[in-house]
Design a protein around this nucleic acid. Structure first.
Length: 276
DNA sequence: AGGTAAACCTGGACGC
DNA sequence: TGCGTCCAGGTTTACC
């Protein structure tokens, strides 16, 4: 479920409710997700206050006072939401933080069936040294990334454009769905070698990535409130997808059947007429 | 070094 | 109804 737009939507929701809340304690149902959970450090969050909720790539960062930071990833199937305290545990619910907020007692709850997500605690000012964050490329939204920079970074890279887009060393936050969608919008064939892009291609690709992510955030914002509240609603963006999951169906622009192929073990969709 | 495939884990959809 | 197979929104690791 969690693409960058969903992570950002969760972040915005939590940022409205969590800052200022006091941690009363934590409950762990298991001591590992994708990686071991630092159990003692999680329990030592007790009596700290939440300062802010940030996002880097698809990671959520909860800042506490005194300054430690919880690093959370939702993996493929993770969900993070708040409910009134002491509600029944769900299947695959792995941990909770018990909070005293301005609206009373609430639990911050983490549910993740496949356990590809993670939870770590780090010293706030050591964030950039954390192994999961240190190698990340630039955020696609925000002003930092330019077409010139994108052009430079793709020189000599013979990987397919879509594979390049999904590599977080290059750009963060572009998942499998939006990599296909962005290539379609830019008119770039997903199998083209990254090094073959010219500046105009890079300009269109960057614009397409930003537009797709921003529109998805806008769409997610309207329906993900239910999700954040714990009532998962699948497929909130499906009606807006131009190519992903539409193999064999007519292209919205030219009616040519959308093709499906596999790229780096991942399903990839494109219009053979509109994209070159 | 760069490019590709496999691995982690569970559940749901589909075909027989 | 039941079982086997394939697929899934992420990311790291291991290989060529």
């Amino acid at each position: 479920m969690p693409e960058l737009p969903e992570v950002e939507t969760v972040r915005r929701h939590l940022a409205l409710h969590l800052p200022g809340a006091l941690v009363l304690g934590a409950t762990l149902r298991r001591e590992d997700l994708r990686y071991p959970i630092p159990v003692q450090a999680v329990h030592s969050l007790a009596s700290r206050r939440i300062l802010a909720v940030r996002r880097r790539a698809k990671y959520l960062l909860l800042d506490f006072v005194p300054p430690v930071t919880a690093l959370i990833h939702l993996g493929m199937s993770g969900r993070l939401f708040t409910t009134p305290s002491d509600e029944p545990w769900q299947p695959h619910e792995h941990w909770r933080l018990h909070l005293q907020g301005s609206a009373g007692l609430v639990d911050l709850r983490y549910v993740d069936a496949r356990r590809f997500g993670c939870l770590d605690i780090l010293i706030s000012h050591m964030e950039l040294q954390h192994p999961l964050l240190a190698g990340l490329g630039p955020e696609p939204l925000g002003a930092a990334l330019s077409a010139q920079e994108l052009l430079r970074a793709t020189r000599g890279r013979r990987v397919p454009v879509k594979t390049w887009l999904m590599d977080s060393h290059n750009v963060v936050g572009v998942g499998n769905i939006y990599a296909s969608e962005a290539c379609f919008r830019a008119g770039v064939h997903p199998l083209r070698a990254a090094t073959d892009l010219n500046l105009d291609d890079c300009q269109r690709l960057l614009g397409a990535v930003q537009a797709v992510l921003q529109e998805a955030i806008a769409a997610g914002g309207s329906t993900l409130r239910d999700f954040v509240g714990g009532d998962a609603k699948p497929g909130y963006f499906q009606q807006q997808l131009a190519v992903y999951g539409r193999g064999g169906e007519p292209c919205h622009a030219c009616a040519t059947p959308i093709e499906r192929t596999v790229l780096g073990t991942r399903a990839t969709y494109f219009c053979p007429h509109c994209q070159s």
